[in-house]
Amino acid sequence: MIEVSNLIKYYDSFCALSSCSFGVDKGEILAFVGPNGAGKTTTIKILATVLEPSDGEAIIDGLSIINHSDKIKKLIGYMPDEYGIYPYVTVKDYLDYFAGMYDVEISRRSSVVGMVSELTGVTSFLDKETHQLSKGMVQRLALAKILLNDPKVLILDEPAHGLDPRGRIEFRLILKELRNLGKTILISSHILTELSEISDSVVIIDKGKVVTAGKVSDIQRKLQPSRKYQIKLTADTLNCIDSIRSMEHVEMVSIENDVVFIEHKQADGFIADIVGKICLNGGRILEVKEVKQNLESVFMQLTGDINESF
């Protein structure tokens, strides 16, 4: 749905983006992650047709952002990282206004506004004036606004910024619902735990370059080739793990606070062999869990030092 190739952006002599390439499949949620000043917002603004690239190309639903920016505007819903809402107007008037600005016919406006309000949970405060809204309400309103033209692609720059935990959870639920509706979502955020829960794939960007891109699980595997498991045993049977150390393909066995950590480079089924061997040696297993590297640690590992990671 989105194909970014060799995108370059200069602000005078400063290079904000250097040869940035990645892709997003239809109906997918892509997490766009990077430290401050990495070039996330620049990329997003280019995709949203707010900025023009210095070089390179981006295609959204088969249309070039350079040559068909007008058509692309009808395809996308863009929520900037910082935005304002016109004050002293009601939420309904505000949505009506943008429905008009999205060329929705007058006869259809009220039903469209009703639908997006329902979807984003804005209905309860439709008659409230915008300057009386809380941060969470404003966020919902902004989301409702970008859905007015029924976009195929949603581009959200730090959408959960400034929201309390409840607001974030609610926002996440809305995004999941939007994914179920078939929307392709590109989302940038600093709250990585949140992104890892909802995103299908991730692009990590640093210093204007894409450090890595792909499915979250693929990246995790790439960064952590060996599988790590934690096995909890009863305290009296901990000594049985000595037999595991001698097993072929087992790379590391360690004990921390009565929990055994085992690493191997074999396929998923190999853990069954390990568990079988522990049981044979009299070990009584309480819990077996795979230790996965979360998005945060992936991010830290990749953006800590690019050269070190690759």
């Binding site: 949203a48 007008d70 505007k73 863009y78 910082e82 809402i85 600005m101 606004k145 033209n149």
Partner: peptide, 18 residues
């Protein structure tokens, strides 16, 4: 200044219409 500019320019209508 109000930070409403980006919302406005990414709407579907032409600048002339705005």
């Amino acid at each position: 200044a109000r930070k409403t500019f980006e919302f406005l320019v990414t709407s579907s209508v032409t600048p002339e219409y705005i």
